[in-house]
Amino acid sequence: MQCSRSGLVVSLSCLQVALGLLHLALNRRHPMRYGKHDDYKQKQEEQRPGREKAEGNDSSQKPPPPLPAEDRAHVPARCAWFLQELPACLVPALLLAWRNPPRLAPLGCKLLAGMFCAHYFYRTFIYSFLIRGRPFPLKVLFCGILFCTYNGFLQGYYMIYCTEYPDDWCNNLRFTSGLILFLLGLGINIHSDHVLRQLRKPGEFTYKIPQGGLFDYVSGANFFGEILEWFGYAIATWSLPAFTFAIFTLCCIGPRAVHHHRYYIKTFTSYPRSRKALIPFIF
């Protein structure tokens, strides 16, 4: 496979930025309907057989219409996260396998395998089996699978077939500073996931106020960690696809952190008002 640096890579990178801005515009005021922002359980309660209006007991009242298929179609959280994250790990691995030997000799391949694939290996094979979450909407899962496949191809294709780093790149300030940011973000992300899991007992879906770690300063500590990861990866690799992915991540989960923050303030009267939504002490 040959690199099409000026054509395919630039086009896919520009598309990624456009998708991020579109997502930001569509979800700036209202969050995507999954997790704590999914009213699936509430709709189920409203549609239970035998439920009657509070103002009367008219037995001739027709039962409410069934929920639309798009609202009923949910997948267990662990299965959904595994299926959604798998392509981002699998596609680059396949591209590496198809590359003529030596497969990991170029520095770009090592960076891809060591940073990008490491994150998604954790997300696919560890996080997805530990999560305790509500059922996941099928339409959101489908969009997630498409994006992870698309982004996995873009990052993998560029790093395997297009990048050319000097021999001393690992001593470059961009690489070392980016790697530090990536590892810091990864550590925050993993620790925040652990804090969130400990809030619930097995089989429990009640949301509680997260405490500890970066959650003492922001409501979206896990989101902050992931954003930090991908900006660190972009700086370390100094590649157009990595920077566009970092921008997409900010546009995608940044607003969700804000919606989480508003949810906590609205739901819990004791929620610490000193916490910010995403960036400690700032925002």
Rank of each mutant, 00 (worst) to 15 (best):
L173P: 03
F231C: 10
A18E: 04
R28I: 01
L24R: 00
N27C: 13
G114M: 15
G56S: 15
A221C: 11
L8P: 04
K43Q: 12
W98H: 11
Y150K: 06
L107V: 15
I190W: 02
L67P: 02
L19N: 06
Q47E: 13
D71I: 05
V17C: 13
F175D: 05
W169N: 14
C143P: 01
C89T: 02
N57I: 12
L96V: 06
Y120N: 05
G152W: 02
S6N: 15
L138M: 13
N151S: 14
Y120K: 09
F129N: 07
W169H: 15
F205T: 12
L250G: 12
D167C: 08
A242L: 08
I279K: 02
R197P: 07
R275Q: 11
G213D: 04
I235Q: 02
H260A: 12
I145W: 08
H37W: 09
F281T: 03
Y263K: 09
R256E: 13
Y233T: 00
G232C: 01
G7V: 10
P76G: 04
A236V: 01
I235C: 11
G56D: 15
L96G: 04
A80Y: 02
Y120I: 05
L250K: 10
F223D: 04
G20Y: 07
L94I: 11
E226N: 04
A242W: 00
T163G: 04
V218H: 01
S274R: 15
L181V: 02
E46V: 02
F223P: 00
I209Q: 10
T176C: 09
F147A: 07
M32A: 15
M1Q: 12
R28K: 11
S177G: 03
